[in-house]
């Protein structure tokens, strides 16, 4: 009975799929939407709001790329991925860009064949524990039951850390952040470990965030960044420089508020090159001149995105820390637009 529906759908899919083409940029333009892989839901980074619209810090990157390429920050199809499916989704072409707080590691870059286009959040793995347990250091966690998200680098870091400090623990593997919450809150595990930003976001969603503390130890480097498939350098360049444009915009003081004014021309050659009033940077990327203007307008520059989604005035309340501009003691350092 219903088989015909599927045959129909398959036929339709077959017709619309058309001839495969190598360039992701052309695919995206032809499709009219950007397929962007995000988490299944981590408040502040990528989560659907009450109206079902995705918002968050990673979502901002997706929207900026869509705005730069397609001129429309809403022309993004968000594909929720888990630790397990994210790499296959990217490798098989289901998504064009993966912006899912993914740690840049050697083997992912080299062995799995992906290209990290930059780092949008410098993170590290931390531990969260109920205050009532009175633990103040990760070294006191001997014998604790630890909830970890499987398929992430945190799982490996955790094993290394406890091994190095010669303390034992009981791992409880869980698939998604959502599953970890009830386990942790009901006490089925003593500790929850993931990236420090993720811990802050998770804690913000608790009823009584104050009852839980994040331990001071950061046990690993977790540079999180968007990534694309290996081998399509044009597309990689677009993603890389869109991210750089957001970072450079903050450094140069370009915000979504003053961008219209600045885009009509300024005395600063660097801003002019970035915003396309001088030089042909957009053309070199295969885009038009004001690609970066659109990208920055989509959600603001890096600093604005940060403040709006995960900054100190949000429930998540992350300090800039390492993620400040290099001029302010952070690690954010965009190569020059020249």
């Amino acid at each position: 009975m219903n088989r015909i529906v599927i045959l129909g759908a398959m036929t339709a899919a077959g017709l619309s799929a058309g001839v495969a083409s190598a360039a992701t940029l052309d695919d995206v333009k032809a499709r009219g939407t950007l397929n962007c892989g995000v988490t299944t839901g981590l408040v502040g980074f990528a989560a659907p709001n009450a109206n079902g619209e995705w918002e968050g810090f990673d979502v901002g990157v997706c929207r900026a790329v869509a705005a730069a390429v397609l001129g429309d920050p809403t022309a993004v199809e968000f594909v929720p991925t888990t630790g397990k499916t994210r790499f296959t989704a990217l490798a098989s072409g289901e998504i064009d860009l993966l912006a899912r707080n993914t740690t840049w590691t050697f083997s992912r870059d080299v062995d799995l064949g992906f290209e990290f286009v930059g780092i949008n959040y410098y993170d590290g793995q931390g531990f969260m524990i109920p205050k009532e347990l009175g633990v103040s250091s990760a070294k006191e966690l001997d014998g604790a039951t630890v909830c970890i998200q499987t398929g992430t680098t945190t799982e490996l870091n955790l094993a290394d850390y406890f091994r190095k400090n010669n303390i034992s623990y009981e791992p409880v593997p869980i698939e998604t952040n959502a599953e970890a919450q009830p386990l942790y809150l009901e006490g089925a595990c003593d500790v929850y470990t993931t990236d420090a930003s993720g811990l802050a976001a998770t804690r913000a969603a608790f009823e009584n965030p104050g009852d839980h503390v994040v331990l001071p130890e950061i046990i690993s480097k977790e540079p999180l960044g968007p990534l694309v498939r290996h081998g399509d350098n044009e597309w990689g360049d677009i993603a890389r420089w869109t991210l750089n444009a957001l970072i450079a915009a903050e450094e140069l003081g370009v915000t979504s508020a003053n961008i219209d004014e600045l885009a009509s021309g300024t005395n600063s050659p660097e801003i002019n090159r970035l915003l396309g009033t001088e030089g042909t940077l957009g053309e070199m990327l295969g885009l038009d001149a004001d690609w970066a203007v659109r990208a920055i307008k989509a959600g603001g520059n890096y600093g604005e995105l940060f403040e709006k989604n995960i900054g100190e005035n949000t429930p998540i309340g992350l300090a800039r820390g390492l993620n400040a501009q290099w001029t302010e003691g952070g690690l954010l350092y965009s190569p020059p637009f020249r």
Binding site: A13, A20, T85
Partner: peptide, 22 residues
């Protein structure tokens, strides 16, 4: 369906997850 099947379709075709599961 979730992680392997996509490799068996021609490059560039985009069969969504529900269809692969079906």
């Amino acid at each position: 369906a979730n992680v392997v099947l996509a490799y068996f379709f021609p490059p560039g075709s985009n069969i969504d997850l529900v269809l692969r599961v079906i």
